[in-house]
Design a protein around this nucleic acid. Structure first.
Length: 215
DNA sequence: TGCCCTACAGTCCTTACCTCA
DNA sequence: TGTGAGGTAAGGACTGTAGGG
């Protein structure tokens, strides 16, 4: 356990004794005492609910920015310390630092913590969470991409199976005029030896050289 | 081999917001 | 139309573990 944590726990317990905090501190002995007012959560989420939320928070921020406190021991109505929420400025600076480098060394951590009036442990945890959640987002993106690939390939597979059935039917079917005229529509590519219908462009050739194109 | 540091995965908890009865 | 309950997502923090020096 580092000095910050030691100090923090000591602070928490000290405050607990002074204020006679109840279950909150029992269950959250390691929770911070710091807090900020109605902070905007900077994230990658763009769904409707959060857009609305962000709008609302932005409006509120205009009114409460003066009250914004980076380190605060304000309690709620029950006398319990409220959970920390980083200020917009703190979040933005952490985001910028993260964009430059998603890991942080000891010196950078110390400097950033000092600049933002946070504990080094908080900066460290913020980077850990940020990395984890970035990775999660990327995994989700990859998952969507792979799902689309799968759908495309399934469609392609289905279509090729149908074509194969058609070709087999031509090969084993009765030799009448219908068949011969139908067969006349098929051409063999001299370069790749694939069969395709000239009228349908290079469907088979394309499929045999196919690349998956996604949005 | 043990220790320290760091990154990561998993999880908990709080907060804020939305939906719906 | 207001309101409380339940659901959900985001974010801060912690714990346990693995790997490197």
């Amino acid at each position: 356990m580092d000095d910050d944590q030691d100090h923090h726990m000591a602070s928490t317990l000290d405050l607990n004794l002074k204020l006679g905090l109840g279950s909150y501190v029992q269950n959250n002995v390691n929770k911070p005492l710091v807090d900020s007012k109605e902070e905007l959560a900077i994230d990658l989420n763009h769904d409707r609910a959060n857009e609305l939320s962000l709008k609302r928070v932005h409006e509120e921020q205009a009114n409460t920015v003066e009250e914004e406190i980076a380190i605060d021991t304000t309690n709620d109505n029950n006398g319990c310390p409220k959970k920390l929420r980083l200020t917009t400025e703190q979040s933005n600076k952490l985001e910028n630092a993260f964009k430059r480098h998603n890991t942080i060394n000891t010196a950078q951590k110390r400097a950033l913590a000092e600049e933002l009036n946070l504990k080094q442990r908080q900066v460290e945890v913020w980077f850990q969470n940020r990395r984890a959640r970035t990775k999660l987002k990327q995994t989700e993106v990859n998952c969507i991409y792979l799902r689309k690939c799968h759908e495309k390939l399934s469609e392609e597979n289905l279509r090729l199976k149908k074509e194969l059935e058609e070709l087999r039917a031509l090969k084993v079917g009765p030799s009448n005029t219908t068949q011969s005229s139908k067969a006349a529509n098929w051409t063999i590519c001299s370069s790749c030896k694939k069969i395709w219908k000239p009228n349908e462009e290079d469907v088979v050739i394309k499929s045999s050289h196919s690349t998956i194109e996604l949005d």
